[in-house]
């Protein structure tokens, strides 16, 4: 059981303030998103309808500390069909952002952040790669992109 005192009533409003979260309170829990979700089909932990419900109720910790918050594939199948114009993938992105800000960053994401800061891309370009590319007649790739690090540092995005 969860008591009303444990709910964080501002949580829903905070999500509504994020990019793409505007329409979250229009959700009438029809389940179209859950029935559309290719992830939910194979992993019952992830259910967008239930996640939105939890947000609107104010279950902040239960959402942000969860393992399911990372499971949205962002495929947009749900949002194309949502009858109430709720931007479900954007809401899931907002929740992942909030989880990251709260320090619950998923290790995979942390690794990607490090790679981006170091190389400006999520794969390191190794010497082998450029050699191989030249052999195939492809142009060499730049090894780094400092500007990406500037963006991430400026916005305080850390692993």
């Amino acid at each position: 059981m969860i008591t009303e005192r444990e709910l964080d009533k501002k949580f829903g409003l905070e999500v509504a303030d994020r990019y793409g979260g505007e329409a979250i309170r229009r959700c009438f829990s029809c389940g179209t998103c859950a029935a559309s979700c290719p992830v939910g089909r194979f992993d019952s932990r992830f259910n967008p309808r239930r996640t939105i419900r939890m947000v609107l109720l104010g279950m902040r910790d239960q959402v942000l500390k969860s393992d399911f918050v990372w499971l949205c594939a962002g495929c947009h199948t749900c949002s194309e069909r949502c009858p109430q114009g709720v931007h479900i993938p954007d809401i899931m992105t907002a929740l992942k952002n909030m989880a990251t800000e709260a320090g619950y960053t998923h290790p995979t994401l942390a690794k990607q952040i490090d790679l981006l800061k170091d190389f400006g891309r999520v794969f390191e370009v190794e010497e082998y790669d450029n050699k191989r590319r030249v052999k195939m007649g492809l142009p060499e790739l730049k090894l780094r992109c400092e500007e990406v690090k500037i963006i991430l540092d400026k916005l305080g995005v850390n692993s």
Binding site: N97, T105, Q112, L152
Partner: peptide
């Protein structure tokens, strides 16, 4: 991929 950490 970074949108997961910061959409901005």
């Amino acid at each position: 991929p970074l949108a997961n950490a910061s959409a901005e």
